[in-house]
Write a protein that binds this DNA or RNA. Structure first.
Length: 503
DNA sequence: GATTCTACTTAGGATAATTGTG
DNA sequence: CACAATTATCCTAAGTAGAATC
């Protein structure tokens, strides 16, 4: 881990050293007292070399390794569920190592222990063959619980949470649940108008709790914020969602950028990804926020009378199956559908249509704040793209000069040959200009996408039937939108969605 | 009503595999 | 074909939500 910046952090070092001390023998403990006097470079080099050696392996050796992995997958990567053979998602337990949470995690550097068969609970059918534990070991427990979907589970020691072995997204079970999720979101689409008028009315409620709920719901609906459940302090990184927002996370501006009543959000959300947004809101929302913030310190809860549990209970009353996260799914899918409608032109080429699809996808990713680190190769590849553009510009300029020359020539000679030559020059210029245009949109796209992660929304928020219908309607092969794994996950949608599917 | 536990979905980074390019 | 760039897969952390327990 020495390559990583986080090993230099004090929290990481303290956690690691204290856990390491616990593993030492009494003798070792007497000798090894300060982390900063320890030199790990030798063991670090050992692993670096090992990785390099594996990379440098001859082709046949690599092939052999691949086949061995495949065999392992064949043996352990499948299960029988209700008579059907299904792929398992994660069929390996997690190896021991040093825990690295995301963001400013108080437990970074702690030792994550090796999982032993004695830690593992197996869940299988009553009359199925119980998998054998490794020789000399036994399972913690074998149970037959048909009400849950996991096949095995163990408790991880750092966060004291349960880890599960579950089915692959391609399985029938996961597919059905995925579909149900989108069906709930579609039902929300039908009643969201009513819900909106309800919460708008609640902005004026006598009850503080109802007002807070109504403002929070407005944000969840409008901005696709996460619910934001309360979490144990000191156990995880300090991140928030809607209901757990604190006064310090919002700033009110009576007027900003020419708009009245602007709310500026700045907080760390899931995975410590920063959410920053400046949004004009309605006057009543603004005034309510002012009131919620009165006589509070920066560290106080903005919605002190609200919990995700009470919000979800209220939502359940408004629509069966409705919870806060459904708004995010609904908003994302509707955004994709709307953007696709706005951006796709039937006469475009397939490549141009795919570009439109990716733009629509991007709009959703921006809405959901799905970010990624700028790729390491970004600057370099951007540079080559820029030089390509420069070269193309030069070509265009040359072609223009050539065209001018040809025009003069034709004026002077006026024969058929010079005319066809002139036309040829014209077509060349046209083609070059087109190419230049494509390159510069590519550059713009690249720049605007460098910190946007498209995969998360594609996999979790966008009803695949929207994409499938779009592909069918515009003659785009579905493989251009979904790769093999994605097609397996969305098999249920590939089968059923016709070109006129509407979310 | 608060807290803890359980089960599941959603998330970005690391790494492996594939594709593009000179 | 070698190497770089891009894309797919793997990995596991970090959320949501509801039930059980205090």
């Amino acid at each position: 881990m020495l390559d990583h910046e986080y090993t230099t952090k004090e929290v990481f070092q303290n956690n690691f050293f204290s856990d390491w001390r616990k593993e030492m023998t009494a003798e070792e403990r007497k000798v090894i007292k300060h982390l900063d006097k320890c030199d790990f470079t030798e063991i670090h080099r050992y692993f670096v070399d090992k990785t390099a050696a594996r990379k440098a392996l001859p082709k046949e050796e690599k092939q052999k390794l691949k086949e061995e992995a495949k065999k392992l997958q064949q043996e352990f990567g499948y299960c029988i569920l209700d008579g059907h053979r299904e792929k398992v998602g994660n069929f390996k337990t997690e190896p021991p190592g040093l825990f690295r949470g995301r963001g400013d995690h108080p437990k970074m550097g702690m030792l994550k222990r090796r999982v032993l068969p004695e830690d593992v609970t197996i869940n299988c059918g009553r009359d199925s063959e119980v998998p054998e534990p490794p020789v000399g070991h036994r399972w913690k427990e074998v149970r037959c619980d048909r009400t849950v979907t996991w096949l095995a589970a163990w408790t991880e020691n750092v966060q004291n949470s349960v880890k599960y072995i579950m089915l692959n997204p391609s399985s029938k079970l996961k597919g059905e649940r995925d579909r149900e999720k989108y069906e709930v979101a579609r039902r929300l689409k039908g009643v969201v108008g009513e819900i909106r008028s309800q919460y708008r009315a609640d902005w004026k409620s006598q009850e503080m709790k109802a007002r807070q709920r109504a403002v929070a719901l407005y944000f969840i609906d409008k901005l696709a914020l996460r619910a934001g459940r309360e979490k144990e302090e000191g156990e995880t990184a300090d991140t928030v969602g809607c209901c757990s927002l604190r006064v310090e996370h919002v700033q009110l501006h009576p007027e900003a950028d020419g708009c009245p009543y602007v709310v500026e959000f700045d907080f760390l959300g899931k995975d410590s990804i920063r959410y920053y947004n400046k949004v004009p809101v309605e006057k009543l929302v603004y005034e309510n926020l002012q009131m919620f913030m009165e006589n509070k310190g920066p560290g106080d809860d903005l919605f002190d009378r609200l919990t995700t549990a009470s919000l979800n209970k209220h939502l359940q009353d408004l629509m069966d199956g409705l919870t806060a996260k459904v708004f995010r799914t609904c908003n994302a899918s509707l955004t994709l559908q709307g953007q696709l409608r706005a951006l796709t032109r039937a006469e475009d080429s397939v490549a141009a249509k795919i570009l439109s699809y990716n733009r629509a996808n991007r709009a959703v990713a921006v809405l959901c704040n799905h970010q990624r680190a700028t790729p390491k190769t970004f600057e370099k590849s951007m540079q080559t793209l820029r030089s390509k553009i420069e070269a193309k510009k030069k070509q265009v300029a040359e072609a223009k000069a050539e065209l001018k020359k040809a025009r003069a020539e034709h004026k002077c000679r006026g024969d058929g040959r010079s005319k066809s030559f002139l036309e040829k020059r014209g077509r060349l210029l046209e083609r070059l200009e087109e190419q230049l245009g494509r390159l510069s949109t590519q550059a713009t796209d690249k720049e605007e996408s460098k910190q946007v992660a498209l995969g998360t929304s594609k996999l979790n928020y966008l009803d695949p039937r929207i994409s499938v219908a779009w592909c069918k309607r515009f003659g785009v092969p579905v493989e251009k939108i979904y790769n093999k794994t994605q097609r397996e996950k969305f098999a249920w949608a590939l089968d059923m969605a016709g070109e006129d599917f509407e979310f």
